[in-house]
Amino acid sequence: MKKRFEVLINGEHCKACGVCLEFCPQDVLGVSEQRNKAGFYPVEVKKPEECTGCGHCALMCPDACIEIYRVPMEESVQS
């Protein structure tokens, strides 16, 4: 079965350092227009369908804000 990937970002812990944006080879991520409680514009998932599950964003995130899950095709949430 073909898999898609769900990228979950803890927007309240994100400090908008931008490291994940730099290391995502697929431009899946972008910056939110809403500030979080700490006053940062957190990173959010812009193009989930482009994610290949390489994990670079999560690997590089210094705040452990990013989680990635493999989701069966029919269950994946298309936003």
Binding site: F5, N10, E12, H13, K15, A16, C17, G18, V19, F40, G53, G55, A58, L59, C61, P62, D63, A64, C65, I66, E67, I68, Y69, R70, V71
Partner: peptide
């Protein structure tokens, strides 16, 4: 299903390090 999850070795507390600091 997890390719990457917040490790159980960390608490849920937000780390106080500056943005982009590799302490985290």
């Amino acid at each position: 299903e997890a390719l990457y999850h917040r490790p159980a070795g960390l608490t849920d507390v937000q780390m106080r390090y500056c943005p982009g600091c590799t302490h985290g």
